[in-house]
Design a protein around this nucleic acid. Structure first.
Length: 175
DNA sequence: CCCTGATTCGC
DNA sequence: GCGAATCAGG
């Protein structure tokens, strides 16, 4: 079947009335819903009333699919260039583990190994090898951490011993 | 697994 | 221009 003026007008009418592509294809006959969608897209009336789907997905990358030719041979197109991975910024990853900056004490310095006391949050902040390495230093809630860091420390429990490991690490550093 | 529209690309 | 294949969702 071909897209006669008649059939196109019917297509437009049904599409405008909100029928789905498969319903239109069924009514027209001789075409699949893909054909209808393709025609709709070509006519430029793709965007209809899409109540529950304003989802905008990124363009699909090319499909280098092998195709079987009539003579039985297989042809493979050159693979399309991969999209840019886009790595997450380091700051975004760190933010989860250290949402709070070290508490400034009276002397303006954050809690260090020397000044960290039992009642202070022992959440490490920064690289231990860095001179600026410090601890959270806020009031420890019920464990070694303040209420905020306790949420982070005692939540994921990934793999095996994130909690114990974190605590031991602090004990090792803090004494 | 059913459905939806969107997109690609060989024809 | 056409539409099958495929994708990304509901």
């Amino acid at each position: 079947m071909s897209w006669t003026e008649e059939r196109v007008s019917v297509l437009k009418k049904l599409w405008a009335e909100g029928h789905s592509a498969s319903q239109i294809a069924k009514q027209l006959g001789g075409v699949t819903r893909n054909a209808v969608i393709g025609k709709v897209h070509r006519l430029g009336l793709s965007g209809r009333a899409t109540p529950s789907r304003p989802v905008k997905r990124p363009p699909r990358l090319a499909r280098p699919k092998p195709r079987v030719l009539p003579d039985g041979s297989v042809k493979v197109a050159a693979p399309a260039a991969p999209e840019t991975p886009e790595v997450r910024p380091a700051a975004e990853r760190t933010e989860v583990m250290a949402p709070l900056p070290p508490l400034q004490q009276a002397d303006g310095e954050p809690a260090s190994i020397l000044t960290l006391r039992d009642s202070m949050c022992k959440w490490p902040i920064g690289d231990p090898a860095d001179p600026k390495f410090a601890f959270c230093g806020r009031k420890a809630d019920c464990g070694p951490y303040c209420s905020e860091h306790a949420k982070v420390a005692f939540q994921p429990a990934r793999k095996r011993e994130s909690r114990k490991g974190a605590y031991d690490y602090v004990r090792r550093i803090a004494g």
